[in-house]
Amino acid sequence: MQYKDIIADEFGVSVWPKSHERTGYYEIIGIREGRGIHTARGAELPFKSGDLFFSRPGDSNTFTVYEPTHFLRLRFTIPYVSKQPLTVLPENWNTWMDRFLTLPDRNNGSLLQIQSDRTLAIQLLQAIVNEYSGDHKLRQQVIFQLFTSLILLIWRNSGLIIDSEELSQAKDVRKEDLTSYIEQNIYEPKKLTLNAMGTHFQYSAGHMGIVFKKKTGKSLSTFVQDYRYDLIEKRLKYSRLSMKQIASEFGFTDESHLNKFVRSKTGLNPSEIRMDH
């Protein structure tokens, strides 16, 4: 299958389409209106109007819709962000874009925290969709300028811009410090984000992601979900807690979401793991 370098569309649904696929594409999804649960790589977080999510090719990325939701979707490839003339690119574009595409945990919740940026990002994404579906002159140039503005907003919110002064002044941290922090806060998901950990260890969110991957060999979200599963597996094998109790302990909204998480890690249902022991 041959891919276009960029595709933009929008759709309103009451149920997330099972046919949704992104093979070969990076993807940014904005929520113009609606609410529900966003599931990515085993992590479940609520979504609402103004949220923005990012996923890489091959990522598992679904939405459980609680009320009719209008999605704005932008798909793009590596060639799209790398083939543009240098004269039209912001300074350090290639370096920053590489960080954006490879830094872990980009889809571990909405990309935007600043309220005014949330509104502006949805407007930019809507403008990209409108331009893509139109046939105006300079259409591709306008789309790329809107795209760079959207990425700049994401950088501003996510701490991806790391200057040399920060790199030289930030304190060093041991792997044991990182794993201990996660073990102590595994039941408090709000403390297991790059922003929260960065505040604790005196790093920006972007630098925290780089340090964590370097020290542990895994992204923060992968490490947390692996450790979370290890604890759940022990509950299933060695405790008499009900599925409902285990789901509640680990912050799942119900047993079905616990089942989905365990199946994503093992291919088995929780009851099968319990029966095998």
Rank of each mutant, 00 (worst) to 15 (best):
R32W: 05
I114E: 15
L231Q: 05
F63G: 04
L89E: 08
A40Y: 03
M243I: 00
D172Q: 14
E10T: 01
G30M: 00
P68V: 04
N92S: 13
M97S: 11
K48P: 01
Q126P: 00
I122H: 11
F144K: 12
D254N: 15
T39G: 02
G159V: 12
F76V: 00
E255S: 01
L138W: 13
T266D: 00
L167N: 14
I28H: 09
W96Q: 15
A43T: 03
S149P: 02
E91G: 03
D177C: 04
R235C: 14
S82D: 14
S264P: 08
N107S: 12
E183H: 09
A40N: 08
L236P: 10
N195C: 06
I28N: 04
I122P: 07
A121T: 09
L125R: 06
E176M: 05
R41K: 07
E188H: 08
A8V: 01
S271L: 07
R99L: 11
S158Y: 05
F11Q: 13
L124Y: 14
S164C: 09
N259Y: 02
K218W: 05
R235H: 03
L111K: 06
T102D: 12
N195M: 10
W16A: 05
S55F: 08
Y238T: 15
S14P: 07
T95M: 10
S221L: 13
D135V: 07
K191Q: 14
I246N: 01
M197I: 00
S116C: 08
